[in-house]
Amino acid sequence: MRYNVLGKTGLKVSNICFGALTIGPLQKNMTKEEGSKVILEALERGINFIDTAQLYGTYPHIKQALKSYKRENVVIITKSYAYSKETAQESLKEALKEMGTDYVDGFLLHEQESEHTIRGHYEALEFFIKMKEKGYIRSVGISTHNVSGVKDAIKFKEIDVIHPIVNKQGIGIHDGTIDEMIEAIRQAKKNNIGIYAMKPLGGGNLIYSYDEAMDFVLSLDIIDSIAIGMQSKEEVIANILKVEGKIIPDDIKRKLNNKKRHLQIASWCIGCNACVQKCSHKALKIVNEKAVVDPDKCVLCGYCSKYCKDFCIKVI
């Protein structure tokens, strides 16, 4: 396992990060016991970095895993939509209590779009900075689906970490191309900002070109770590072997290839109809102002996801 320093935070992180979203109620909905076993598999195999968020509902899973692992050996970064001192205080209190820890290694403003949204959430950021001074938080930053989010975060000297979307097709980037995102990240790195990427497989939509998708992100020397969702021990093993440049055993490949997957459309879909118009298999339609999928027609190609500006569509 390779470890990198996460920019000016000084935190030493594995170059693959355990993305906790997928084990929680928004996707697999694993029990805390089930989820903790997958987390522990990752930790015991060298991953020392966990990404989570208030929204994900995975704090109990992490707490359960930490009962069997030394807290000081794990880097945990979380996120919230806090916009005021009060909401920031509540989100930090929840994170510490629900994960059973005295501190978090990073607290990010979730899904920031630009300088304007960062300023709109600045009161929360100020609170997190004060908690950083007191030792409850070790770094602050933003997550973003926007090129402008990365560019504008550079303007704030307080920002230690940026968590942007990076995948070979630019799936989920709201306001530009993957080339533009990479250039923005390159500028952030020049300012010694830590970068850990999200969605290397485009929310599962690139799962059938796994090697190509992972090779693309791993080739970028401007990224300190890659957060990827993992729901089983086999996925943990396969992803670790991949980042280490080793061969994934055939039995693990078969098990993962035989996993039953489906197209998931998130609850925040606004029914814009873009995906419906692009689906050549006629597997999507709008019902009650939301997109719905016909599983008998869907071939899980994931092409529709490229046209969803709100990143509602995932293959899980």
Rank of each mutant, 00 (worst) to 15 (best):
A227P: 03
Y210R: 01
K168P: 10
A238C: 03
I237E: 01
Q64N: 15
N288K: 15
S305T: 12
K70P: 12
S280Y: 13
N258C: 04
G271R: 04
V13H: 02
C312G: 08
K297Q: 15
I159L: 07
I240Q: 00
V150H: 08
A238K: 00
E235L: 03
G35Q: 02
I47T: 07
I207Q: 11
E133D: 15
S148K: 11
C279E: 11
D294E: 14
I265V: 06
H110Y: 10
K290V: 09
A88W: 01
H116M: 12
I316F: 10
A238Q: 00
S80P: 04
V5P: 09
V74P: 00
E212R: 01
L108V: 12
R119I: 13
P60I: 01
Y122I: 03
G46A: 04
E289L: 13
L220T: 04
G204I: 02
T177W: 02
G19P: 04
I248D: 00
K97G: 05
R261I: 05
D221M: 04
E133W: 14
S280M: 14
E72P: 12
Y56P: 09
T52E: 01
V243Q: 09
G202Q: 04
L300S: 12
L21M: 15
M1V: 07
Q112C: 04
K260G: 11
L21D: 03
K8N: 06
E234I: 01
V140Q: 07
K278E: 14
I265Y: 04
I162P: 07
T58N: 02
A283M: 12
N146W: 12
H281V: 11
G100W: 09
M198L: 13
Q89I: 08
L96A: 00
L109R: 00
M214G: 05
Y103V: 00
D211L: 05
I228W: 05
K134C: 08
L218M: 15
K12E: 10
E244N: 14
H163W: 09
K199C: 13
K282Y: 15
I173P: 00
